[in-house]
């Protein structure tokens, strides 16, 4: 069935769409509002008063800073690991045909399809079995399992659009492996890698389940927030942090969206 040529949707459909969007985004606004409330023990509606004091309180809490630092650290390293492994894997899968190629492709993507709790439990038992103490590194490895997928998916899509003979052309013109990578491969997959890296970073930054299973005493920011919700003191601090997290994860995702959109145009213009 074709849609209305005027592009006009009936009113009930518009209302339903608006209601859906409100349902998705109003709760987030609520969190922002509670960051300014004067009531610190419970979430009371409407807020009895508005204040900016929680921003100062949050700023001065060392545990917030520790958690934030750990999260940034974990997300950065996990993303770095994912960028290297995901790109190499995508290059291998897209540029050559070998026995078991589809199976490997599936196995790489599997961690993101599996429920986080399965990944978490299996990693925890594997780490215990190998007698690896839980540390920041085990969290990073845990996060890398699903970060690789995001980078891989972005890179493999771009590799498929990149003509394979371009790499041969580069070698034919006298470029060695590293020169070809720098002058031909990287410029063609660069935006896809930045986009994949940003998505990976955002995924890692707010990950809870796998982190719970792979962390020792360390608290990443989302874990810290969960703990904080149970305690009845300085509740709006959590909301201030939540606001920051929303911004920190939203911006890279938006950037990734625009980067891959441009990438499509670049790839298309080469046709």
């Amino acid at each position: 069935m074709r849609s209305d040529p005027n592009g006009r949707a009936p009113l009930p459909l518009k209302l339903a769409a608006a209601a859906g969007l409100l349902f998705l985004h109003l709760p987030i606004l609520l969190i922002f509002v509670y960051a300014f409330t004067t009531e610190e023990k419970s979430y009371q509606w409407p807020p009895p008063g508005l204040t900016l004091q929680w921003f100062a309180v949050t700023w001065n809490r060392p545990d917030v800073w520790q958690a934030l630092q750990l999260s940034v650290q974990v997300a950065s390293i996990a993303t770095a690991i994912a960028l290297v492994l995901g790109t190499l894997c995508a290059a291998a899968i897209s540029s050559s045909k070998f026995f078991g190629r589809e199976a490997i492709s599936l196995l790489v993507i599997l961690p993101i399809a599996l429920p986080g709790i399965i990944t978490g439990i299996s990693l925890r038992s594997a780490f215990s079995l190998m007698e690896i103490p839980f540390s920041t590194w085990t969290i990073m490895l845990g996060h890398a399992t699903f970060c690789v997928v995001v980078v891989y998916n972005n890179a493999v899509a771009r590799f498929r659009r990149t003509s394979g003979s371009m790499i041969e052309a580069s070698m034919d013109l006298g470029a060695k492996g590293l020169q070809t990578f720098r002058h031909v491969v990287l410029p063609n997959i660069g935006t896809a890698l930045v986009a994949g890296g940003m998505l990976a970073f955002a995924l890692s930054f707010d990950e809870v389940i796998v982190t719970t299973f792979t962390a020792g005493q360390q608290q990443t920011l989302p874990i810290w927030m969960l703990e904080e919700l149970i305690r009845p003191r300085q509740r709006p601090v959590t909301n201030v942090v939540a606001m920051v997290v929303v911004l920190v994860t939203l911006l890279p995702i938006l950037a990734a969206y625009y980067l891959t959109r441009d990438g499509d145009q670049i790839a298309g213009s080469g046709k």
Partner: peptide, 27 residues
Amino acid sequence: VNTVFQDYALFPHLNVLDNVAYGLMVK
């Protein structure tokens, strides 16, 4: 030995002059 490829395999991210100069650039 140099090759003219069936699909030309020009580098889409470089302009025509940089494409032509590529072999000299890497040397």
